[in-house]
Design a protein around this nucleic acid. Structure first.
Lengths: 90, 90, 90, 90
DNA sequence: CACTGGAAAATGCCGC
DNA sequence: GCGGCATTTTCCAGTG
């Protein structure tokens, strides 16, 4: 029974710690929402802003690879993506 | 009471119809998932594939506007997106 | 080039299939919308109706969840419920 | 150009604030992950633990939802619950 | 016509 | 390493 009690206390502590973190997470989520609201109030387009943030997060070389692959697929379907130079044969 | 009964029947019918549609929706969602799985099994990159599908859906002119605005924001932060001509001062 | 062409055709076929499914999905979404519109026209409160549908969906889920919860706790205690294996009777 | 510059600074500030929040969010996510790892190291089943947390979160929600449901139905029946209007007693 | 809320999709994580 | 699941994010319709 002492054993069980120890586990019980451990469990309770873990649950409490997790829930505390989740409270903080919710607060940060709210903060973020407010900043976006403020941005919008100042005339910025939040959708574009989100894209911008996302792009900044990406490793540039990785981003380029993604672009390249998308171009590849688009070519396969005959969609001209624009400045994808066909003369640069590999 | 007859009135209520009529409404009850109507309600039941509506619920049933909606739920039937939702069943079909779930089936289609599964179908789609399977196609993507098949694509992956054939060596395609599903993430790129999703992007491709999304791009095909977009109105080209609208897509360009989005790009332009993103470029604008990137310039504001000093991120050089590439061929965005700085000499074109407003 | 024949190789590439094969992949290209595969890709085109996949894209087409996916987009076909998405068309169907949109149709179903419209169907659903119409049913709700009809409900509203008949004096039902759609918000309530949506809640009702959600509730009906959740109730079976909850029963299932209780089961899952039980299984989980049994697992946690080292009691394998598994496929109710009658052969394992010690 | 001064105008543009002002907007640029605003944008930069917004981006910075958002990214700062996102850093914090990532830290909290890591904290949470570590707590779960610690739980597992102490012999707890993390899947069960997650379920438990979810359940604790849901239970209060359900009570609230019942209230909301009741309000909705009352609205649907034309009974305004509003600010508990005592004057409406038939 | 902007905003809130809910549905749908995408991403990331965990376990096998 | 992959599939499945949970979470998060994105999108869109309904509403005031």
């Amino acid at each position: 029974m002492t054993n069980a009690s120890v586990a019980d206390r451990q469990l309770a502590a873990l649950v409490e710690r997790i829930e505390r973190v989740e409270v903080d997470q919710k607060e940060l989520a709210n903060d973020k929402k407010e900043i976006y609201a403020e941005a919008k109030a100042n005339g910025f387009d939040t959708k574009t802003l989100r894209k911008l943030i996302a792009r900044r997060k990406k490793d540039p070389e990785e981003a380029q690879e993604e672009e390249a692959m998308l171009d590849l697929y688009m070519h396969a379907l005959g969609m001209v993506p624009g400045p994808t130079d066909e003369d640069d044969l590999v």
